[in-house]
């Protein structure tokens, strides 16, 4: 472990570190759920969001919708489009977090999206306001460590974690470049592909997480290609948390009619599925 990069020092008020510490104490893997802000409507999104912690989501990712989500498959592309029909902006996403935090102070919130809406908003302003409403981490899909300093400097100043992705294509030579900038946790992309397409391969994930452990002490979450409670359990066995996005968003897609109007009971359907995922993940560790 001599080459390992130590996790950045985090104080006890840090929700992400506290949550992974709690998971470790309970000896179980965590569930990270992804939904896009204001999908399918601001009202239903808020209902789902507020129901997630009680349904077993240990960490929550909220997607900032973008017109051109290059790394996402059809499910999340469409969720972005539904959200953008409601003219969802960065401010709306932050407002939703503020609302959520009125009743929930423990579950970490991570905003995930593409760089342009954040850059356009202003990096410093974004970091300050995100911190003020209770955001814990940020994932920017198209901002590799080589380009990230202009945002990271402001996130760091506001105690927000910049969470980086590692991929099956990230070589041992490259991992230190990514991990020296990483904080909070490492998000490992299980497949070489876009979200919601191929299924994550358990053996490949096992090898990948073992490789990552040689380089970092940060918790490892694995995502892309986890669709069922069974897959969540299998992948969760090799990491600290499993991330599910497209499969949840797909239920939302099926629960709206052609005009985008959500059917009755959609929130319950989504939360029931999240409960089944949680049951899967929470049984992942022996």
């Amino acid at each position: 472990m001599s080459a390992a990069i130590k996790a950045k020092v985090v104080d006890s008020s840090n929700r992400i570190a506290a949550r992974f510490a709690l998971l470790k104490k309970h000896k179980r893997a965590g569930l990270v759920t992804f939904i896009t802000a204001n999908d399918p409507t601001p009202h239903v999104f808020m209902d789902i969001l507020e129901g997630l912690p009680a349904s077993g989501a240990d960490l929550i990712e909220i997607g900032i919708p973008f017109s051109d989500p290059m790394a996402d498959g059809p499910a999340i592309q469409l969720s972005s489009q539904r959200a953008l029909k409601h003219k969802t902006r960065v401010d709306d996403v932050l407002e939703a977090v503020r609302e959520f935090r009125k009743n929930e102070i423990d579950t970490p919130i991570i905003l995930m999206g593409y760089y342009n809406p954040i850059y356009h908003y202003g990096n410093q302003e974004f970091a300050e306001r995100a911190a003020a409403v209770g955001v814990d981490g940020v994932i920017v899909v198209d901002l590799p460590p080589e380009e990230s300093e202009e945002l990271t400097v402001h996130l760091r100043a506001n105690d927000i974690h910049m969470i980086f992705l590692t991929a099956p294509t990230s070589s041992d030579a490259r991992l230190p470049t990514i991990l020296k900038e990483a904080s909070g946790f490492v998000y490992h992309v299980a497949i070489t592909g876009i979200t919601g397409t191929a299924s994550a391969n358990e053996d490949a994930v096992k090898v990948a997480t073992m490789r990552l452990r040689k380089h970092t002490d940060l918790p490892i979450a694995v995502g892309f290609g986890i669709k069922t409670p069974e897959q969540a359990r299998a992948i969760g066995a090799h990491c600290d948390a499993a991330v599910v996005g497209s499969a949840i968003v797909d239920i939302i897609a099926k629960g709206v009619d052609a005009t985008g109007k959500p059917q009755a009971g959609l929130t319950m359907k989504v939360l029931e599925f999240v409960k089944s995922l949680a049951t899967g993940v929470h049984g992942a560790w022996p």
């Binding site: 290059m70 790394a71 760089y115 899909v141 198209d142 901002l143 590799p144 080589e146 380009e147 980086f164 992705l165 590692t166 991929a167 099956p168 294509t169 990230s170 070589s171 490259r174 990514i178 992309v189 070489t192 592909g193």
Partner: peptide
Amino acid sequence: EAGHFGLFGGRYVAETLMPL
């Protein structure tokens, strides 16, 4: 060396593509 023309240019891609 990092692909910038002043403020512009760069390499804003997902990590999967970065090594490529």
